[in-house]
């Protein structure tokens, strides 16, 4: 009882106790009170407005074949879509679901292999000298250049796409994780070994948490490039998926579906990045709080 009173006093003298939930609510309310959401809204309005005017009102020369705003949104939310695809058709969700599944496989595989590899590359100088030059030669090869090889090596239509998606993510994750380990101040590992930690404990208690901010920066990049290479892969190979949807709609001259596919990619891409960010903030609360205080 006495203790709680003491702690509360101390906490209020420091400002309110920071909890993750409280922090989120606080941020949401300040965000709504700031001009930021309205500026964001204006930003969207300008682009959509220009699209509408350019295609449907002014009928600008280069825009004549492009589907208009009302046509696309009319089709997207049509219970009986002209081209057979809208939020009311199961096919739409099949495309999203299959793309998401490929992203999930590729991203998890890239994280599962890339993070440990990056940690060891940063941790062991010998290992780095052995692997890193090879890694640096493979990394700049554009994902599109891997497409033919991926199709030759992997059977079927699914695995080449997952492989291509994986590859881009893997390089981003590994490199950032390695940089994360290198960024850790040596005094942390020295302090730990001074306090009696074994080499393995230093790795677990210092190297992994210390590299975490960079790892999550890497995962942010990784999920972004994953969508990029997924669409590239789906345009070449595969039976479903958003990239496939965009490409076949072009071939079949069903232009509104191209735009539906693009906007959908934007939304799911944003949502997946946000999920990675939220997970990172959850795992690195020491950092969130630090930033919250500095706010």
């Amino acid at each position: 009882m006495h203790d709680t009173v003491l702690n509360t006093d101390a906490a209020t003298s420091q400002g309110p106790e920071v909890t993750t939930m409280g922090l989120t609510m606080y941020r949401l309310s300040t965000w709504l009170k700031s001009p930021r959401p309205y500026l964001m809204f204006i930003g969207f309005a300008i682009v959509l407005g220009f699209w509408y005017l350019a295609v449907e009102v002014w009928k600008l020369p280069r825009f004549e074949d492009m589907p208009g705003l009302t046509e696309v949104f009319g089709e997207w939310f049509n219970k009986d879509p002209i081209y057979g695809l809208s939020v009311y058709t199961p096919e739409y969700y099949t495309h999203i679901g299959i793309s998401l599944r490929r992203i999930a496989y590729a991203f998890l595989l890239a994280t599962g292999l890339g993070v440990p590899l990056g940690l060891f590359l940063g941790w062991s100088k010998t290992f780095r000298e052995f692997i890193f030059p090879l890694f640096e030669v493979l990394r700049p090869i554009p994902i599109l250049a891997w497409v033919p090889l991926a199709i030759i090596i992997f059977a079927g239509s699914e695995s080449p796409v997952v492989f291509l998606t994986f590859l881009a993510s893997f390089f981003a994750t590994t490199l950032n994780t390695m940089l994360g380990v290198e960024s850790i101040d040596e005094s942390y590992s020295r302090a730990a070994s001074c306090l009696g930690a074994s080499r393995w404990q230093v790795f677990r208690h210092v190297v992994i948490p210390g590299a975490m901010p960079y790892i999550f920066t890497g995962l942010q990049i990784s999920i972004g490039v994953a969508w990029f290479s997924l669409v590239a892969g789906e345009m070449v190979s595969g039976q479903f998926g958003l990239g496939y949807l965009i490409n076949t709609s072009y071939m079949m001259v069903e232009y509104p579906k191209i735009i539906i596919g693009m906007i959908t990619l934007g939304i799911v891409g944003f949502a997946s990045s946000a999920m990675v960010r939220v997970l990172g903030d959850y795992l690195m609360q020491w950092r969130v709080r630090e930033l919250a205080l500095g706010d």
């Binding site: 942390y188 302090a191 930690a197 208690h205």
Partner: peptide, 29 residues
């Protein structure tokens, strides 16, 4: 651990609370 060093810059682990930092030595061993 018979010779402990306090470094120029703070070497408290930023990812641990004050209590976990203090307890680090005994816990590690």
């Amino acid at each position: 651990k018979d010779r402990l060093v306090l470094f120029q810059e703070s070497a408290l682990f930023p990812w641990m609370t004050t209590y976990d930092n203090i307890m680090y030595g005994p816990r590690a061993r």
